[in-house]
């Protein structure tokens, strides 16, 4: 494989208290590609996604074994600042969650907390980020209006712009379209294909068609008997959906499992 690897998950097990949520996951996420994580509910898709920006740590009692490397750097090492990790690895959540502020202030929030104060610089970042999230044309005349006045799909694109504004290398998306209608969903998927040029995208989805439509690579998680999530297969999306190596993958994508 001549692909550059952006995110390397090495032997990761994740506990919530005593409960083992993920068992010994190894996964290499290729750079500038879209990697989908699929699997039935409770298989640990979101948990796995959150290990890549250490958002698993906001849940009290969570504990991680193993290593996660982003651009070759271990993000769980002692001397690593979690703030720096999350800046490099952006995240978009399942429910659009813009702050109850203006579109501009939403997008400028990240750059501002990282110390950019100059209005010109912020203006540039806001415009560039909104262009990248394909919202500029719709939003440019109402940047000072509340982001909550937008439709759900537009709100999600504000959130994407907000994540892009801090210039991440990796963009994590946790079922980014599951709360949206079909048309807004297709727009988000188009956007993901665009984003792939500049970012490494990892997307959790419970929508098999979406994984098949949009992703280059697919990782399949499956809960074991003790409910711990295991990675049972990782391959090119085309291969997973036409000729999976694991029987459980085939059962799952054809709807017999999960």
């Amino acid at each position: 494989m001549d692909q550059r690897i952006e995110v390397r998950i090495v032997g990761v097990s994740l506990y919530y208290g005593k409960f083992l949520a993920l068992r010994h996951i190894d996964l290499d996420v290729p750079a500038n590609q879209i990697t989908a994580i699929i699997g039935p509910s409770g298989s640990g898709k979101s948990s796995l996604l959150r290990t890549i920006n250490r958002m698993n740590e906001v849940i009290p009692g969570s504990r991680l074994e193993g290593q996660v490397l982003v651009s070759g750097q271990s993000i769980y090492a002692q001397n690593v600042d979690v703030v720096e990790v999350r800046r490099k690895v952006g995240m978009v959540f399942q429910r659009p969650n813009p702050f109850p502020q203006s579109i501009y202030d939403n997008v400028a929030y990240g750059p501002r907390i990282h110390g950019i104060k100059e209005k010109r610089a912020l203006d540039d970042i806001v415009e560039r980020s909104l262009r990248r999230s394909a919202l500029w044309d719709e939003a440019k005349d109402k940047l000072r209006k509340s982001a909550l006045a937008l439709s759900g799909g537009q709100q999600q694109r504000v959130c994407i712009a907000r994540a892009l504004a801090v210039d991440p290398q990796v963009l994590l998306m946790d079922e980014p379209a599951s709360a949206l209608d079909p048309i807004a969903t297709l727009k988000i998927e188009d956007l993901m294909r665009e984003l792939r040029q500049a970012y490494t995208v990892v997307v959790v989805t419970h929508n098999m068609q979406q994984a098949a439509r949009v992703s280059d690579w697919t990782a399949v998680l499956m809960p074991a008997l003790d409910r711990a999530g295991e990675l049972i297969e990782f391959d090119k999306t085309a291969k997973i959906f036409t000729n999976p190596s694991d029987k459980r993958t085939e059962d799952y994508i054809t709807g017999r499992l999960g």
Binding site: N53, M91, F93, F99, Y109, R162
Partner: peptide, 18 residues
């Protein structure tokens, strides 16, 4: 205050205090 705001802020690299 909805938990969503906290998560969104933290995920952007804000510190807890920010």
């Amino acid at each position: 205050v909805p938990q969503d705001y906290r998560y969104a802020s933290l995920a952007l690299g804000a510190t807890k205090w920010q």
